[in-house]
């Protein structure tokens, strides 16, 4: 979610701050959880607690998604159109990359990790935003 600060309403700025805080929280939570499992495994009791700690970033991610959805929902109609167009392009590229790359793997292409599939989608989302800004400049 990126937008030029001069092109935002006070409500957009408020929503973007909320989103940024949740995103920061998710980033910290993810890294702390991963560090805990990697270097201090003994601190996490086995069993249900392990799963709860592992699921913590997912819980925080739900708030990131909620705050992003709120930003898009409450953005003015042109900004919403630009965001939705960019999201549709990004989602489409991610989905079809995931769905189609299997055929290339069968043909001999290297297997990728899950997060590698996100990169083209994120790039296209960013390009979609830039295109929207340019289109309605």
């Amino acid at each position: 979610m990126t937008a030029d600060a001069s092109e935002m309403t006070p409500r957009d700025r408020r929503n973007q701050r909320r989103y940024a805080l949740w995103m920061l929280g998710w980033f910290i939570c993810l890294n702390v959880t991963q560090a805990l499992f990697r270097f201090r495994r003994g601190l996490v009791p086995p069993g249900v607690i392990t799963w709860l700690v592992g699921a913590l970033p997912v819980v925080v991610a739900a708030f990131v998604i909620w705050s992003w959805a709120r930003y898009v929902r409450e953005a003015d109609e042109l900004q919403r159109r630009i965001q939705l167009n960019a999201l549709a392009l990004g989602f489409g590229v991610t989905f079809f990359s995931l769905a189609s790359y299997g055929a290339l793997v069968s043909a001999g292409a290297p297997k990728l990790e899950a997060n590698h599939y996100m990169a083209p989608g994120l790039c296209v989302y960013g390009l979609g935003l830039l295109y929207g800004k340019w289109q309605y400049r």
């Binding site: 957009d12 289109q135 400049r137």
Partner: peptide
């Protein structure tokens, strides 16, 4: 209660 970009886009007929 919209962005300046929206006002501009409406004005210019985009």
């Amino acid at each position: 209660d919209v962005t300046r970009q929206t006002v501009n886009a409406v004005e210019t007929g985009k």
